[in-house]
């Protein structure tokens, strides 16, 4: 292949598009700026305790963000994850409190999330209904189901759930166990996305679904799969939540889907599909966590925090997309 680079003056004209750099490293830059800024302002920020605290708080959002990333890569959206988190936590707490043992409790929760994902997936992938509306419906339905299951009460896991609460509050080598689970989810997702057929087709569907279909690929199967993954991971986040507090609740995770979508988008994924990666998604979730933490340390009131958070999302978008205006 003849490439026109052969007559480049050595190392001179090699210019990588600026916008590409911003897109790739924008999230990392935001994250670094935040960490450095916070560390210089507050003694408390870079202490091991605080760092672990931030990570622990981020874990459920981070895990859900992985599922959301898969969905968004196919050009979809999943608004039901907050409700499925609640459904997961209730399913887990109910089975654990009934003394069914940890494996059954985990399976019940993940199964409930996956089942909801199957329903969503069938409607979106095979009936070709718009994901925004279908997952909105699932958001309501799953919230209701979780509250019905829990009879509107918090479900204490008590002694039979001890193994779970140990997991929720336990450490391995100084790292909270839920955080380790989160990192594991990210690693597996990274491998799947970059090195498997599944990951490739998921990205391709978001870029050009028609071309994928006309390549003879069973695209609906893959679309369905991403909603199942998202549902199962949301329920997993629910298990973490239940095991941290010892309580399953049908009313937790209200609005969590918005944090999760924000994390994925700060991570540079495109809502138009096809574009996004796990490392940046993790950074996106961490950015969200760090901002919350900084403002807590600085005693910023909750309502003001929400306003700041909105601003940060806009800044992140400006960094990633604004660089395009610099050059056409």
């Amino acid at each position: 292949m003849s490439v026109v680079t052969e007559d480049l003056p050595e190392g001179k004209r090699q210019r990588i598009e600026v916008s590409e750099l911003f897109r790739r490293y924008g999230t990392a830059a935001i994250f670094l700026v935040l960490v450095i800024g916070a560390a210089s302002q507050s003694q408390a920020f870079l202490t091991e305790r605080n760092v672990m605290n931030v990570l622990r708080q981020v874990a459920p959002t981070g895990i859900m963000a992985v599922g959301m990333l898969f969905v968004i890569l196919t050009r979809g959206i999943d608004l039901s994850v907050g409700s499925l988190l609640a459904l997961g936590s209730v399913s887990c707490a109910l089975t654990a409190a009934a003394g069914s043992g940890t494996p059954v409790a985990v399976a019940a929760a993940v199964g409930a999330g996956a089942a909801a994902g199957i329903v969503t997936g069938v409607l979106v992938a095979y009936a070709e209904l718009p994901p925004f509306v279908i997952t909105l419906a699932m958001m309501t339905a799953a919230r209701g189901s979780a509250l019905i299951l829990a009879s509107g009460q918090p479900i204490m896991m008590g002694d039979p759930g001890e193994a779970l609460t140990d997991f929720g509050s336990g450490f391995v080598l100084g790292v909270p166990q839920p955080v380790i689970l989160m990192f594991a989810v990210f690693v597996v997702a990274g491998v799947v996305l970059n090195f498997t057929k599944f990951g490739r087709i998921v990205k391709a569907i978001g870029s050009n679904a028609e071309a994928v279909r006309l390549s003879g690929i069973a695209a609906p199967r893959y679309v369905m799969a991403v909603y199942v993954i998202s549902g199962a991971l949301a329920a997993t986040a629910g298990i973490i939540s239940a095991s941290r507090t010892g309580v399953g609740s049908g009313s937790i995770g209200v609005g969590a889907e918005l944090d999760v979508i924000a994390a994925v988008v700060i991570g540079g994924a495109s809502l138009m599909g096809g574009r996004g990666g796990v490392v940046n998604t993790l950074l996106g979730a961490l950015v969200m966590g760090v901002i919350g933490n900084i403002m807590n340390l600085a005693d910023v009131p909750g309502y003001n925090q929400q306003v700041f958070m909105g601003g940060i999302i806009v800044v992140a978008m400006l960094l990633q997309y604004g660089a395009r205006w610099l050059r056409r």
Partner: peptide, 15 residues
């Protein structure tokens, strides 16, 4: 209907 513009030539070819 043919190419997936965002994806590498390699990926397009083996699709």
């Amino acid at each position: 209907q043919g190419v997936i513009l965002d994806m590498p030539i390699r990926t397009n070819t083996t699709m």
